[in-house]
Design a binder for these strands. Structure first.
Length: 827
RNA sequence: GCGGAAGUGGCGGAAUUGGCAGACGCGUAAGCCUCAGGAGCUUAUGGUCGCAAGACUGUGUGGGUUCGAGUCCCACCUUCCGCACCA
């Protein structure tokens, strides 16, 4: 072994060795229990960044740990290779998106290999290749057949910068999720996936996700936004039509003094088509529609509205009330129309006050509701008043009866609604999966037959970045014949949202070469579900909810048997530097390649795992990595020094049960094995696992000299040293392999089992008892573990310092906790 | 506004079940080694007071429960995150 630690050649050597060994290739016919460890696959932007390094380092520790623990581990990687940046690069630099993407992948693949991550590269998937995206098309057609994919005209979020339609989720806060440009509204036909069919199951499935962070479940729950109430119809006699509203407070209906429609409500179109409608109303409605979607800061939005002049009839009371339009009613939630109860809803109250509409109290607090604050609606439950036959009833109790009455009279029913909306997947871009649909003037919308898949992206699209869909202008692509009638027809020229790809890629890893179905059912049954999924919390809503949705669709299509893809999800924290996220715009990016060149992959991995727990933010700091680099050098030197000791007097397999200096080292070794095993296995607290390995190594250095004196000592030293290498191997695999080999092992570490600990050795022989007087620490003493309480008490009371602290005070009570402390209460 | 998470040394962070606060690492200081050091080794390192032994104090703030609270309860402050007129 060399005198000094040179990480460069060592890391290259072992990366090649693992590859030659096919150490990370997973096989279905392996009899050991399976473990599927998955990290979110990267977008091939060009370079691996620290967020990737962190994400994949965590996954690699789990992978290597589980392998050493005897599991058949599947640890795949691939590329989320379709999407906007490739196209923007093409426009900017004249490179074809395919070439740009494949070049980036080639470079990033090498970067990942240099980091020493143990992937099964034979399962690599790449979503921009037809071998992958043909299954997007296959899945789309299956969904189309089942009515899960459908086309409708709707207002869509349009990003003028990216020149594409965005899903609501991608336009949160009125800004494009990618470039933060304000989103505008357009009305077009496009494709939706009916995720709302699964709203209830996506919500109830949370019950099975106990191993998810609670806040992620909560975010999803809010996103799904289940709400139970009543649907009611208000007749509009003048137009011989009716307006349907949704309310959670049917008990307040006698206080409904007007109805409000969203400016986007379908009835508004009819209203405005009337030539007699007043110009101000027409103008206001048009403006409100536009503003409804370009809103920036919700706090700035002022409630505005106008009277339509129409009247509707309250189905319970028969009262005729005015119909208004107002900007505070959203078309996207419920029915797009509400009954306004100003006395019992703050928003309605504010609106009624502004426009002088009547406010009628119909609920009174059950006790002492005399001094209600001015200007505030009473939104609580209480006793019903002014409510016809229901007056005097308790509001909470009347709801069920009112629902039944509405249903019996056929003007309403109890109903559940969700905030979740169907997922718009059409994109007017080039670098995506073509939607496998043909538009025939005779037959209408026709799916491309399965035997004609994939519908391949044409290579020669003109990517200028100008308005409209690039595929629309590629005549050779767009012009086709109808699969049904054979007549001339046009292809759908939209491409799919790339979240479609990532919604099922984890299935594809289980059988990446399968060529008759998206996934081989037997392989899916073998590997699914993913046992641990690791990735950034920024995907807590979008990606994770879409993936859960797709898993349920796979199940319903008979492709797989699981309900949930990721029973355990670890939401990894952000990587920051100088107080903010690393980003090009802030200029605080640290390049992993530079760090590897300076300190090696092992030091980088070790540091990124050591500096904070995986689920917390990680603050980069240049000095910190030097500490880890120093630790690896120390480890190297320690092994080198110990080898000299072993060379001089080889361990003879002496009895490890004896020897005094030996037992301390042994206890520490076994305690460390226990601690590290539990930290990785149950808590995934990798930072504390690393620190206890550091402690063990530090201890070996101090104890080495003394231990070297006896046979038993040398044996204990060897045990400690080898344990340290085994425990550290998942974190810093290259140096550990090298040192493992240097200490005379023929089998590589990657094929060596994780060490077991002896519970007897892992427990303490002696306990330090803390003595408190009135809860204040006064003294401590060492005693054999398991010493009974009365002996502890006696010992504690006899200590001079304790006696001094007690003085002449009377001992009222003593509290004894075996192996821990004695607290003497005086006074 | 609603919901959630978190506040511990100069810094990143430990403290697994209510029981020694500050593990491990960084930084800092002194010393050793060295031709040299942005290398290595040793020691010290929450704060205040003290020559010292030691004493007091200390986990965002204020209360509470308890023999004992970083940990449990109540109120508040700050920061971060999510949602945001959701009927």
């Amino acid at each position: 072994m060399r005198e000094h630690y040179r990480f460069g050649p060592i890391e290259a050597k072992w990366q090649k060795a693992w590859e030659d060994l096919r150490a990370f290739q997973a096989r279905e016919d392996d009899p050991r229990p399976k473990f599927y460890c998955l990290e979110m696959y990267p977008y091939p932007s060009g370079r691996v960044h620290m967020g990737h390094v962190r994400n994949y380092s965590i996954g690699d520790v789990i992978t290597r740990f589980k392998m050493m623990r005897g599991f058949n581990v599947l640890h795949p990687i691939g590329w989320d290779a379709l999407g906007l940046p490739a196209e923007n690069a093409a426009i900017k630099h004249g490179i074809h998106p395919r070439d740009w993407t494949l070049n980036n992948i080639a470079h990033m693949r090498e970067q990942l290999k240099r980091l020493g991550f143990g992937y099964d590269w034979s399962r690599e998937v790449n979503t921009c290749l037809p071998e992958y995206y043909r299954w997007n098309q296959w899945l789309f057609l299956k969904m189309f057949e089942r009515g899960l994919a459908y086309r409708r005209k709707s207002w869509v979020n349009w990003c003028p910068q990216c020149r594409t339609v965005l899903a609501n989720e991608q336009a949160q806060g009125g800004e494009c999720w990618r470039c933060e440009t304000p989103v505008v509204q357009k009305q077009t036909e496009h494709w939706f996936l009916k995720i709302t069919d699964y709203a209830e199951e996506l919500l109830s499935g949370h019950g099975r996700l106990q191993e998810w962070p609670e806040h992620v479940l909560l975010m999803q729950k809010n996103w799904i936004g289940k709400s139970t109430g009543t649907r009611l119809v208000f007749p509009v006699p003048e137009w011989k039509t009716e307006i349907e509203v949704f309310t959670t407070r049917v008990d307040t209906i006698y206080g409904a003094t007007f109805l409000v429609l969203s400016p986007e409500h379908p009835l508004v179109e009819r209203l405005l088509s009337d030539p007699n409608v007043s110009p101000p109303l027409r103008e206001w409605a048009g403006r409100a529609v536009h503003e409804a979607h370009t809103r920036r800061d919700p706090a700035e939005i002022v409630k505005e509205g106008m009277d339509t002049g129409l009247k509707a009839v309250n189905p319970f009371s028969g009262e005729e009330i005015p119909v208004w339009l107002a900007n505070y009613v959203l078309m996207g939630y419920g029915t797009g129309a509400i009954m306004a109860v100003p006395a019992h809803d703050q928003r309605d109250h504010d609106f009624a006050v502004k426009y002088g509409l009547p406010i009628r109290t119909v609920i009174e607090p059950e006790e002492g509701g005399e001094d209600r604050p001015e200007g505030l609606a009473f939104e609580g439950q209480g006793r019903m008043v002014n409510s016809g036959p229901y007056s005097g009833r308790i509001s909470r109790e009347a709801v069920a009866e009112m629902n039944r009455y509405a249903e019996s009279k056929n003007f309403g029913r109890e109903s559940t609604i969700y905030r979740l909306r169907d997922w718009g997947i059409s994109r007017q871009r080039y670098w995506g999966t073509p939607i496998p649909i043909v538009h025939c003037p005779k037959c209408g919308i026709v799916g491309v037959p399965y035997d004609q898949l994939p519908v391949e992206l044409p290579r020669d699209a003109n990517l200028t970045g100008t308005e409209g869909s690039p595929l629309e202008r590629v005549e050779s692509f767009a012009r086709t014949t109808c699969p049904k009638c054979g007549g001339p027809a046009r292809r759908d020229t939209d491409t799919m949202d790339t979240f479609f790809d990532s919604s099922w890629y984890y299935f594809r890893y289980t059988s990446p070469k399968e060529d008759s179905l998206p996934v081989d059912r037997r392989a899916a049954e073998h590997w699914m579900p993913v046992d641990l999924y690791i990735g950034g919390v920024e995907h807590a809503i979008l990606h994770l909810i879409y993936a859960r949705f797709f898993t349920k669709v796979f199940r319903d299509l008979g492709l797989a048997g699981n309900d949930e893809p990721f029973p355990r999800y670890l939401a990894q924290g952000m990587v920051t530097k100088d107080g903010s996220a690393m980003s090009k715009s802030r200029g605080n990016v640290v390049d992993p390649d530079d760090t590897i060149a300076r300190h090696g992959a092992d030091a980088l991995r070790l540091f990124i795992l050591f500096a904070s727990p995986p689920d917390k933010e990680f603050a980069w700091n240049e000095d910190g990595i030097e500490g880890c680099s120093r630790f690896l050098h120390r480890l190297w030197n320690t092994v080198r020094d110990c080898r000299r000791i072993f060379d001089e007097a080889a361990p003879s397999g002496a009895d490890l049960q004896t020897g005094d200096g030996v037992s301390g080292l042994r206890r520490r070794t076994h305690r460390t094995i226990k601690r590290v095993t539990e930290d990785i296995e149950t808590r995934v607290h990798l930072n504390t696992a690393v620190s206890s390995i550091m402690e063990l190594v530090n201890h070996i250095r101090r104890a080495g000299e003394e231990a070297a004196a006896t046979d038993a000592g040398r044996e204990a030293l060897r045990e400690a040293l080898e344990s340290a290498l085994l425990l550290l191997a998942p974190f810093a695999p290259h140096i550990c392999e090298e040192l493992w080999e240097a200490t005379g092992h023929a089998t590589p570490l990657v094929r060596t089992p994780w060490p077991d600990y002896d519970p007897g050795w892992a427990s303490e022989e002696k306990a330090v008892i803390v003595v408190q007087v009135n809860g204040k620490l006064k003294d401590r003493f060492e005693i054999a573990s398991g010493t009974p309480e009365d002996v502890l008490r006696e010992q504690a009371l006899s200590r001079p310092k304790v006696r001094a602290a007690i003085g002449r005070a009377r001992v009222r009570k003593t509290v004894c906790i075996p192996d821990k402390l004695v607290n003497i209460v005086v006074g």
